[in-house]
Design a protein around this nucleic acid. Structure first.
Lengths: 114, 114
DNA sequence: CGGTATCCCCGAAGATACTG
DNA sequence: CAGTATCTTCGGGGATACCG
């Protein structure tokens, strides 16, 4: 919990039902408006989208740019700092993908759920 | 969500209030008995310890060895497969540690909580 | 358009008790 | 010693309504 337990921190920042999807969208889509994000993520509510974006913004992972217009226009993108997460996300992605295969080997693919 | 979203899978496996601590203990301590784990993790209940260990065992990350004795003796350790998570955990740990410093730069260290 | 405010529900996690 | 069973609590997340 003291010196070598900081991977919990990383975990906490990535946790949240929608954070993975949001990160993925921004990594793939570059700069996106609030409504674009919402449309690209079916089933997410404004509340959750705004909330998760705030948290990512607080951690300097996502950048928020407000255009003082009427109607409002707000754009989101990965920050430079946030992009440094990419290798980790990539490593987790690779491990996750291979793990699914590993579970198949262990239990067979005829499972209904994980 | 289809091909490149598997880092959610990794996330899900690591999530759970106690999994990080348990993993850390096993990585540091090698093979440990149930009661050793419980004593080394203050505040965890038997229920949670058993439950989280079951999940890690299901994913082949932790090995469970039962000695048919009275009173019972059960030992837990990282599986060979589970040890392959180490680089990821290490990377997450490093990022987490440096991120804490990053937050300090951004907001100062005089915060009450994250 | 891009939010916030409010209310509600459900599942993860805690407390406690019992068992082979 | 190493669990499981049962009940309860708490907060993340969903639905809905309203606002600048």
């Amino acid at each position: 919990m003291t010196a070598y337990c900081k991977f919990e921190t990383t975990l906490e920042i990535l946790i949240g039902k929608w954070k993975p999807v949001i990160l993925l969208r921004l990594l793939a889509g570059g700069t996106m408006r609030f409504s674009e994000l919402q449309k690209s993520i079916p089933d997410i509510t404004k509340k959750m989208l705004a909330q998760q974006l705030r948290e990512l913004e607080y951690h300097d992972i996502v950048r928020r740019e407000v255009y003082p217009l009427v109607p409002p226009k707000v754009e989101y993108s990965m920050s430079d700092y946030g992009l440094r997460l990419t290798p980790i996300l990539q490593a987790m992605n690779d491990w996750g993908a291979s793990h699914i295969a590993h579970l198949d080997e262990l239990y067979g693919e005829d499972r209904t759920a994980d």
